[in-house]
């Protein structure tokens, strides 16, 4: 069951580029990355694409297929009609290096800005203990393969380059949530999330959740819980008063 599929692939670099049309053989069971590889093998040997595992686990082959942020290796050709033109572009929120390869260094910069896990001073390594229900909570966030599709689709930075400096993006706000929900993390993540990493920019339109290839409920389980914790700390006079009267931060217990 083969057919000749029609493809429009963006080619170029940071100085400019355009779409090129190709007709390529498509076989049953193939994914878009297979087609890109066939293009390299048969027509354009210098076509640049970043890939590694071909199993949806390395997060390398992020791109946009028919305008939707996807992993090339997880987008089945069977989801398209045989006469449909399939458009493949690099992710559009980040600078392009060449063809389908983006420069995702923004994400590494943001990752470095988040202080690492901070255990309590009184515990030595080896003495850390946590229960299963607490492990499960952050385990969901650790499924992240860092494909940066959530970062790519987030309109805060996709549509507003100037926000990149003050907004960490869903992936790293989720990292902050993971640390904040860790029973042994002693750092103040809440104020930091709002003041340093731009949580207030998020208007919970859920595109990050929609595109996540790991199915992580980023908005419901990380971003909204963080927004509620920020509300506890900064915008809720009753919680503030309670923490003063009882002389403890109830959120930390």
């Amino acid at each position: 069951m083969s057919y000749q599929g029609k493809f429009r692939v963006w080619r170029g670099d940071a100085d400019g580029g355009d779409f090129e049309d190709f007709t390529v053989e498509v076989n049953e069971g193939e994914v878009v990355l297979d087609i890109i590889h066939r293009l390299q093998a048969t027509q354009v040997p210098d076509l640049a694409v970043r890939w590694n595992c071909k199993a949806g686990k390395c997060g390398s082959c992020s791109a946009e297929v028919n305008g939707r942020p996807r992993l090339l290796c997880m987008t089945r050709m069977s989801t398209f009609a045989e006469d449909e033109v399939v458009t493949v572009t690099p992710v559009r929120a980040f600078p392009v290096i060449r063809d389908l390869v983006p420069d995702v260094s923004y994400n590494y910069t943001k990752a470095r800005e988040i202080p690492a896990f901070t255990p309590p001073k009184e515990l030595a390594p080896g003495e850390y203990r946590m229960q299963q229900q607490d492990v499960e909570r952050s385990q969901e966030f650790r499924k992240c393969i860092e494909c940066f599709l959530c970062q790519d689709v987030c309109h805060v930075i996709r549509d507003h380059e100037e926000n990149k400096e003050s907004f960490a993006g869903p992936r790293y706000l989720m990292r902050i949530a993971e640390l904040e929900m860790h029973p042994l993390d002693a750092a103040d993540r809440t104020t930091e999330a709002q003041n340093e990493h731009g949580l207030g920019f998020c208007n919970i339109t859920k595109c990050c959740t929609e595109v996540c290839p790991e199915g992580i409920k980023i908005t419901d389980n990380a971003l909204i819980p963080m927004k509620e914790r920020v509300a506890d700390r900064k915008y809720d006079p009753v919680v503030w008063l309670g923490s003063k009267i009882f002389r403890r931060d109830r959120g930390k217990s």
Binding site: G67, H155, V156, R158, D159, N203, T205, V230, A231
Partner: peptide, 26 residues
Amino acid sequence: SPPACAVSEPHGKYTGETRLPLIIQN
């Protein structure tokens, strides 16, 4: 803001829920 995922919004600037009036959502 945005109309749909990966569809560019028409606004020139965006501050989200960082300031009034939308900070009231808290």
